[in-house]
Amino acid sequence: MEKNEITLGQLQNEVNDWIQTIGVRYFSELTNLAILMEEVGELSRLMARKYGDQSFKSGESADQIPNEIGDILFVLTCLANQMGISLQDAILTTIQKNTKRDLHRHKNNPKL
């Protein structure tokens, strides 16, 4: 593994350590869900400006998109930690579900 790589389990541990030392404690699950929606909204705003019809406001730039994705991942990890959900298990289950459901669906879609 390269120096800058991190597994999902390591991510969950890193976020938990940060919360316990710097963040003091987790916000409630409902508060974190609201924060997650706020962060998704911030990403949406930047995406609308970069890929949509809106222009950037003063002080905004597409360079902020990775930071917003990082914020989303951080809060999503907090929620997973609070609920005892393994991000690795969750994504592997989702990939299996999507593969089973969509094995031929997209290949046979004339719109794609």
Rank of each mutant, 00 (worst) to 15 (best):
V24T: 12
Q20D: 14
E38M: 02
S55Q: 13
L46K: 08
Y26W: 03
S44Y: 08
R45Q: 11
A34P: 04
N32Y: 08
E38I: 02
W18N: 15
R45A: 12
G23Q: 05
Y51H: 12
V40Y: 06
F27I: 09
R45M: 11
K57V: 09
V40G: 03
R25S: 14
D17H: 14
E39T: 03
K50F: 13
I19S: 08
N13R: 07
N16C: 14
G41R: 03
N32P: 09
I35K: 06
E39F: 02
M47W: 11
N13E: 15
E14T: 12
F56S: 06
Q10A: 11
Q20N: 15
D53E: 13
M37I: 13
I19N: 00
L36M: 06
E39S: 01
I19C: 04
L46P: 01
R25L: 10
G9D: 11
M47Y: 15
T21R: 07
G9I: 11
V40Q: 04
L33H: 11
R45S: 10
L30N: 10
I19L: 01
G41W: 02
N32C: 03
R45L: 10
N16M: 09
E38V: 07
V24G: 08
A34Y: 04
K50Q: 09
N32W: 06
I35V: 12
F27V: 02
Y51V: 05
L36P: 06
A34D: 14
M37R: 14
Y26L: 01
I35W: 03
S28Q: 04
V15N: 00
N32F: 01
M47F: 15
R49K: 15
S55Y: 12
L46S: 04
E14L: 11
D53C: 06
K57Q: 13
L11Y: 11
R45W: 05
W18R: 15
A34W: 07
F56Y: 04
Q10D: 07
L30H: 06
Q54W: 13
L46D: 01
L30A: 12
T21K: 04
L33Q: 09
F56C: 04
I35P: 01
L43M: 00
S44I: 09
T31W: 03
K57S: 10
Y51C: 09
V15Y: 05
E39C: 04
G23E: 05
G52W: 02
E14I: 10
M37F: 08
Q54D: 11
R49F: 15
T31S: 14
L46F: 04
L33K: 08
K57Y: 08
I35G: 05
Y26T: 01
S44K: 14
G23C: 06
D53T: 13
V15T: 05
E39W: 00
L46V: 00
D17S: 13
S28V: 07
S55T: 13
F27T: 01
G41H: 00
S28N: 08
